[in-house]
Amino acid sequence: MNVIAFLIYCVIVTFTPGPTNIAILSIAHNFKINKAFQYVLGAAAALGTLLAASVILNSVLAVIVPKILIVMQIIGSLYMLYLAYQVSKMDVAGDITKQTATFMSGFLMQFVNPKVWVFTMTVIPSYVMPYYKSLHMLLIFVLAITTIALSALATWAFFGTVFKKFLQKYQKPVNITLAILLIYSAIEVSGIVEIIRR
């Protein structure tokens, strides 16, 4: 397992602006920090729930269709390339729609966030399941990824407008750097490097 590529993927997907992160930025800017953290905890709980569901679904699929992990690796690498493209042209300067700052609104937001759905359905089968099969290890990875996501969400809450201003000031170089790192992760997940080495 390429731990560096795994961590890069998790950090970039959870730290880059998406619907949930932008909502947290807006909430932290417009409300008190404790309101923002109610939303953060709800979002993190939902991500952990979706990751656990991904482990169960992908474990069942791996038994029924043994080649499904290869398909998910390909889907995961294609998604990372798409995400790299999106990140390279990302603009965080637009206005943000105000969200209600509750645990439940943060929890429900993740279930309508396509970025979260694709991430949770690709990260486990692409990075973890080719190397680890035991439920114990899979749950450790669910907790690790959820912790990374919680750190990302908390960062958006803590920095509020400061983080937004930084991204706006250095937006292009930050976006290009993140896109390059995502392309690296996509190459690692695709298995191309292993095929070339043979």
Rank of each mutant, 00 (worst) to 15 (best):
F107C: 00
M129R: 07
K115S: 08
P130G: 01
M121K: 01
T102Q: 08
M109G: 05
K115C: 02
V128G: 12
N113A: 04
P130V: 03
P125S: 04
S134P: 09
L108V: 10
T122L: 07
I124R: 09
M104Q: 06
L135E: 13
Q99G: 02
P114R: 02
T102N: 03
T122W: 11
V112D: 09
F119A: 00
P130Q: 00
M109P: 05
G106N: 02
V116M: 08
S126K: 03
T122D: 05
P114L: 06
P125H: 04
Y127D: 05
W117H: 10
T122M: 08
K115G: 05
F107P: 06
M129C: 06
T120L: 06
L108C: 06
M104N: 09
S126Y: 14
S105N: 11
P114H: 02
V116Q: 04
A101F: 03
M104D: 06
T100Y: 11
W117I: 00
M121N: 11
V128S: 12
V118S: 01
M109Q: 04
G106F: 01
Y132H: 13
G106P: 07
M121S: 12
F111P: 02
V123I: 15
K133E: 14
V123G: 02
H136D: 12
K133C: 08
T122F: 10
L135G: 15
